[in-house]
Design a protein around this nucleic acid. Structure first.
Length: 629
RNA sequence: GGACCCGUAGCUCAGCCUGGAUAGAGCGGCGGCCUGCGGAGCCGUAGGUCGUGGGUUCGCGGCGACAGCCGGCCCAGAAAUCCCACCGGGUCCGCCA
């Protein structure tokens, strides 16, 4: 139910009458500028004669929801009667109860959301945090809107990088397993193995490249080697035994060749290769899943690239199909197959239809050894996703992959899956930058999500009023989750954000903890008031601050619907912040519990509405709701 | 070299898709408010040539060679918002993922 609907439809009726009174064909659109707490329509296109409009206005009888209709400049304005609005608000809240906010304006349907999909090689870091929180809140938002949502995590367990980690782990598996048994976080320690193995492989490769290179080239290579030595050294400080063992057993081997061979075997489904690769992948996934759970994120389906794209034969089949359908666009370059997506898009004029960037590069489908590439496997995966019967497949993927995601849509189209190509959307978001630091998961150079949560929990513990140590820690943890999630959601996805501790750990206005605190206040008042509350009576005269609060609360279903249709959870964040500011101002000024009846009942009903909206909004953001803090 | 995203108060950001009335918050600054329903709060105040420079579009009637032109009417022929160029920041353009 939408409490604003009756007032707005009344206004529409007035506009329709006005239009016909003026003999106009077009009817002006209704604006709802919330900051003015009135409704408005631009009459510019009607070129009205003010005298005639005023004549019309004076001929109107009394209205139910609107007061003080007036022509201001070229605008027709009307105040919404706050008492009438309050009545429809209370009706809506009592009808919807705890689900207040859901309305018929919400989009429903079936949606598949893929998010996070981090490489199974290292812990989740601040960059993945944005993806995970965005994707999860999107899922919550649509679920709140009664959409049927499936959340998927794509496990990239193929490709060269995974193989280095697998080669490394094979040499130190006993050590790693016993460390994990003793409580080490599996993704963290597996991440060390990955970085160190990669570093050793890189150093070997670079040393070979240096032989026979010119003076200048050699200097460049030496600098690069030093950088990788630095990576090893940093890990040495944390895990000397592990690093020494890896250096001893991997040093001097041709890891690039071994990785390529392991990759080939893995794609072929060789038993031993599977065991070795999955050993490292599953170790990391265990850790990543723990971090996600800590953030309140659950995944419905973990989709392994190897199974869905490679072993099923889907990737190979689609390459063949592409070749058969479009031989003139598939080129053989020394055994590697290249699809001329650039030419294809030009020839078929797909730019607009598939919402593509202006520049599209050709795309390599297979290596010369016959193994597949990421994009090719991703097309197979997209095809699988599209086959699950969702109206829309939302892939939360960073803007870095704009071209790759465009390739996926183009190839789907080329394969004849034109409908799927349009249903698969790249939900793009910008990067999280660490000022003064180049993040690189390969080099083990990043700030892990776990570390941020730990730091935030420690910081918030100081402010927790609860005396009991254990429950205080539990509260601090939830405050930390709220702070971190809100940080990611308070910026528009299309804007790059800088990771700054003081912003993430902000616990004042415009933060997760601020909203949690506001909820606690509202809940605390209601608790003291007791449970028996009759239907509230709306007073004739409503204070200014009360009216603003009523309007904001009445807007909630529309805020939800527009966030859902634009796929913008950040709208919810800013709505809740506005609501909290309004509620806090009102709260300072007007007593609730000590007010006389019937005012007390009215104010309690407002507090109850705030509580429900805050609870639902916080749920959508994934910011934990606390009874006390 | 080409492409995409961003440039709004000292700092962080919303508004841009769908152009119109005083460009909204927060942080930080300054000055206030705790014998009060939870001060992780509230009130007040200062702070903006919306990166720079160009361009572009509105209603009605008549004519039309479909480029526009004429007429009166009107708060107004409206740009942070659309287009172009340039500048600054980020990202991508791989037999990586």
């Amino acid at each position: 139910m939408d409490p604003l609907a009756p007032a707005l439809s009344e206004f529409e009726e007035v506009l329709a009458k006005l239009a016909s009174y003026l003999g106009a064909v077009e009817r002006p659109e209704v604006d709802y500028p919330s900051k003015f707490a009135f409704v408005s329509a631009r009459l510019h296109k009607l070129r009205p004669d003010p005298a005639k409009v005023n004549q019309f206005l004076s001929s109107l009888g009394p209205l139910k929801y609107l007061r003080n209709l007036r022509l201001e400049g070229a605008y027709l304005n009307a105040d919404v009667d706050p008492a009438a609005l309050a009545r429809s608000l209370f009706d809506a809240v009592s009808a919807a109860g705890e689900r207040y906010g859901f309305s018929e304006r919400c989009r429903g349907g079936k949606v598949l959301i893929e998010h996070t999909s981090a490489n199974p090689l290292h812990p989740l870091h601040v960059g993945h945090g944005r993806n995970a929180v965005l994707g999860d809140s999107l899922a919550r938002l649509l679920r709140f809107c009664s959409a049927e949502v499936e959340v998927h995590f794509y496990v990239d367990d193929c490709g060269a990088q995974v193989m280095y980690a697998a080669l490394g782990l094979a040499e130190v598996e006993g050590y790693v397993r016993s460390a994990v048994a003793k409580g080490a976080k599996p993704d963290l320690i597996a991440g060390y193995v990955y970085s160190v193995s990669t570093a050793i492989a890189e150093i070997n490769r670079l040393k070979k490249a240096a032989e026979g290179a010119g003076e200048e080239k050699r200097r460049e290579i030496t600098a690069e080697i030093d950088e990788w030595l630095g990576v090893i050294k940093r890990h040495m400080d944390v895990e000397p035994d592990l690093v020494n063992a890896l250096a001893e057993r991997l040093g001097g081997r041709d890891l690039a060749a071994e990785a390529a061979e392991l990759n080939r075997l893995y794609e072929a489904g060789d038993g031993e290769a599977r065991r070795r690769v999955r050993a490292v992948v599953d170790l990391v996934l265990r850790g990543q899943r723990e971090t996600l759970e800590r953030l309140g994120i659950s995944i419905d389906s973990w989709d392994y690239e190897s199974e869905l794209a490679v072993w099923s034969g889907a990737a190979a089949r689609l390459v063949e199909e592409l070749r058969r359908r479009w031989p003139q666009y598939v080129e053989d370059r020394g055994g590697a197959l290249v699809f001329r997506a650039d030419k294809f898009v030009d020839d078929f004029g797909l730019r607009e239809e598939l919402d593509l960037p202006k520049f599209i590069p050709p795309v390599t489908l297979t290596r010369s050894d016959g193994t597949t590439l990421y994009v090719t496997r991703d097309v197979a995966y997209a095809l699988w996703q599209a086959g699950r019967g969702a109206d829309e497949v939302v892939r939360v993927v960073s803007s870095e992959q704009t071209h790759e995601q465009a390739h996926v849509r183009i190839i789907l189209w080329a394969l004849g899956h034109r409908d799927a190509a349009k249903r698969v959307v790249h939900y793009s978001y910008e990067m999280v930058n660490m000022p003064g630091m180049k993040m690189s998961a390969r080099r083990g150079q990043y700030v892990a999500l776990d570390d941020i949560l730990d730091e935030a929990a420690e910081r918030s513990l100081q402010a927790v009023k609860e005396k009991d140590k254990e429950s205080a820690a539990a509260i601090a943890e939830k405050v930390a989750v709220g702070a971190v999630r809100y940080f990611y959601l308070s910026a528009s996805p299309r804007r790059p954000i800088d990771f700054k501790w003081d912003v993430v750990l902000n616990m004042r206005s415009n933060s997760g903890p601020f909203l949690q605190y506001t909820y606690v206040r509202a809940a605390s008042i209601l608790e003291k008031a007791g449970s028996a509350r009759p239907k509230p009576a709306v007073p004739d005269k409503i204070e200014q601050e009360e009216a603003s609060l009523v309007v904001k609360l009445a807007e909630w279903p529309r805020a939800v619907a527009s966030a859902a249709s634009d796929l913008r959870p950040d709208y919810i964040a800013s709505y809740l912040n506005d609501l909290a500011l309004l509620f806090n101002s009102w709260y300072e000024k007007y007593p609730v519990l000590k007010a006389e009846e019937p005012l007390r009942g009215f104010r309690l009903a407002l507090v109850e509405a705030v509580r429900i909206v805050m609870k639902n909004g916080l749920w959508i953001l994934g910011v934990p709701v606390l009874p006390k803090m």
